[in-house]
């Protein structure tokens, strides 16, 4: 983004130098403006190309939805009905009217808090276990089959066991997040560690790096692209799991809100909640992807 700025300044200043001062003033001003204009137009064009097509599609889908659900016997509410009935939820995410009547923003934050704890724990333990089974053949032989079986178990199937163990809904929900998101992190980290090129190991051997230096200076940077793939799958899965877990455990999360709305027949509220979940999930994925692209800068290319 810096380059076009510099270029436009240069192109604006060059013609003003050789001409007489009076003429230069007259000439320079419109030149600068056109340079600014083309730059603005380019940025606007890029923005429009990225935003307009999905926007048009959303509008189109809304219209179809509206047409389909306007019939008298329709089972689902049309967009206009959702707007009328759930307006407070849409326009103000952060209202507080009572202990159970709060904006969806608050509910999402509570769910995010649980995800942060469960996912954070899964990231730390997952990378550690992944490193272990990536580095040690015996750890892999012993643990890998167990992980391969455990990872196929549905997150919700763990819920009764964790409820029995923790006797409280909050740690149970966190445990479900943890157990859901840890498998892709372990498996991808292990693959990344196993794929460290022999060349880097040779360099480490010649330099006589100790195990700790090898871990921080070679292993983690080299496996970073794989680790972040695991972390990205993990955050997606944990966001999927939290909604389901909260539906069963209750509390004030976004999942429980959907269940509660279903029980009191507030279908429009559910649609709004779904939109929230989708957008937050998208943002979470983008955040992890963004961190990954900063951290793994230069690692993949060689």
């Amino acid at each position: 983004m810096n380059m076009p700025v510099a270029k436009s300044e240069i192109s604006a200043s060059i013609p003003s130098a050789p001409t007489a001062p009076a003429a230069a003033k007259v000439l320079a001003l419109p030149l600068k403006q056109t340079a600014m204009n083309t730059r603005m137009r380019a940025t606007l064009g890029k923005f429009a190309a990225a935003v307009l097509p999905p926007l048009i599609m959303v509008l189109l889908l809304m219209v179809v939805w509206q047409v389909l659900c306007m019939r008298p016997g329709a089972t689902l509410p049309a967009p206009t009905k959702i707007w009328i009935e759930a307006r407070d939820l849409i326009v103000n995410p952060f209202f507080v009217n009572g202990p159970q009547d709060i904006g969806l923003g608050w509910r999402v934050l509570i769910s995010l808090q649980r995800v942060a704890m469960g996912y954070g724990l899964a990231a730390v333990i997952g990378i550690a276990l992944g490193t272990l089974i990536g580095q040690s053949v015996w750890a892999m032989r012993g643990l890998d089959p167990i992980f391969q079986v455990l990872r196929t178990i549905s997150p919700l199937a763990w819920l009764p066991i964790s409820l029995a163990a923790f006797r409280d809904s909050q740690p149970s929900a966190i445990f479900v997040i943890f157990i859901t998101s840890i498998w892709p992190i372990i498996i991808n980290t292990a693959v990344g560690i196993r794929n460290i090129p022999q060349d880097y190991r040779n360099v480490a051997a010649v330099l006589r790096l100790n195990p700790f230096e090898f871990f921080t200076k070679i292993m983690i940077p080299s496996a970073a692209p794989y680790i972040f793939t695991g972390l990205r799958i993990g955050i997606g899965l944990s966001w999927l799991a939290i909604v389901a877990a909260e539906m069963l455990t209750g509390g004030v999360g976004i999942g429980f809100f959907i269940w509660d709305a279903w029980n009191s027949s507030r279908l429009p509220d559910i649609f709004v909640a779904l939109a929230y979940i989708g957008i937050i999930g998208f943002v979470l994925d983008r955040i992890v992807a963004g961190i990954a692209s900063v951290v793994t800068r230069g690692t993949a290319a060689n």
């Binding site: 060349d199 040779n202 360099v203 051997a205 006589r208 940077p221 970073a224 800068r297 230069g298 993949a300």
Partner: peptide
């Protein structure tokens, strides 16, 4: 009988750490 910096190696494919 083990690697060490007293016998530094220049590898064929340079083996620089890309990060």
């Amino acid at each position: 009988n083990e690697p060490g910096p007293d016998r530094a190696v220049v590898f064929q494919n340079h083996s620089l750490l890309p990060w």
